[in-house]
């Protein structure tokens, strides 16, 4: 790790101000991605703006079916929230499968969504739930937010403050973990709600998280795991790496979608 300056923000305004006062400053949330990258000397921010003491970015609120998860909420908090479980258990299930207990008690939803790792779990939930990414300056709908691997609609210095969504009627998540990293080799989040059926796939796309529209169409016609027989997943757009071929990922998209549907009920 190179030398860096540490700042502790206590409000959204202060965080944004601290971040913009230095060219090479970065937000620090759970640090589970950023600190590791800094230790490997792959990132060298001059300044870190610690978000973990910004009270307004923490916690989960559920009012009716309206859900708001503060960006600073840890994976462990999401996994164990009974309020959230009562309206959208699938997202709790997802959070409970991220990394290991240490990672879940440090890492946050805001950090994960900001980072947009192509194998991260949360992007699939945000996209399938048609969630809104709330920032210090605007609200971004999920379909506009994810723009490719590690790429998002966030502007320089823009701070995610919360993720909001309308709890779906049904939802499910199934993940096939990479045997080494346990990130998603392929993860599929399915949701059926006010905005229809949405199916989002993470870990598989060569351009990051994406919606599996053919599966959405099939599931809209009939919400059952029978769709697997009729839908073909095109391996052409899928990632190739040492852990999986595009063909294997295409298969996993179907298998995980089927399991996610089964979980959703």
């Amino acid at each position: 790790m190179y030398d860096t300056n540490y700042h502790r923000a206590s409000s959204v305004e202060e965080a944004v101000k601290l971040r913009s006062s230095q060219d090479e400053a970065r937000y620090l949330s759970g640090g589970m991605t950023l600190i590791a990258t800094m230790k490997q000397r792959l990132a060298a921010p001059s300044d870190l703006v610690d978000l973990r003491h910004v009270a307004s970015m923490k916690g989960i609120s559920v009012e009716g079916r309206k859900v708001r998860i503060g960006a600073g909420t840890t994976h462990a908090e999401v996994a164990s929230s009974s309020a959230l479980k009562s309206v959208c258990p699938a997202i709790c299930h997802l959070a409970g499968m991220i990394g290991d207990p240490h990672v879940r008690h440090m890492g946050t939803i805001g950090g994960s969504v900001a980072n947009n790792d192509p194998a991260a779990d949360y992007p699939s939930a945000v996209l399938a739930l048609n969630a809104t990414v709330v920032t210090d300056r605007r609200e971004i709908v999920a379909d506009d937010y994810f723009q490719g691997m590690f790429d998002t609609a966030l502007e320089e210095g823009e701070l995610i403050t919360a993720i909001t969504f309308e709890a779906p009627e049904k939802a499910g998540y199934a993940k096939f973990p990479n045997p080494a990293s346990r990130y998603a080799l392929t993860g599929v989040f399915v949701a059926k709600g006010a905005s229809g059926v949405r199916v989002a796939v993470t870990g598989a796309g060569s351009n990051g998280v994406f919606r599996a529209t053919d599966i959405e169409i099939a599931l809209s016609a009939s919400w059952s795991s029978d769709f697997v027989a009729s839908v073909a997943v095109d391996a052409g757009q899928l990632m190739e790496d040492m852990h999986a071929t595009p063909e294997y990922r295409a298969n996993l998209v179907k298998v995980m979608a089927k399991r996610a549907v089964a979980m959703a009920g």
Binding site: P179, A180, S181, Y183, M242, H243
Partner: peptide
């Protein structure tokens, strides 16, 4: 696993080497 052309070690961390 090494890249068979460049000889770079592909499994240089627990992200890729499965324990």
């Amino acid at each position: 696993r090494y890249d068979e052309t460049s000889g770079q070690l592909l499994t240089a961390s627990y992200m890729d080497y499965a324990m």
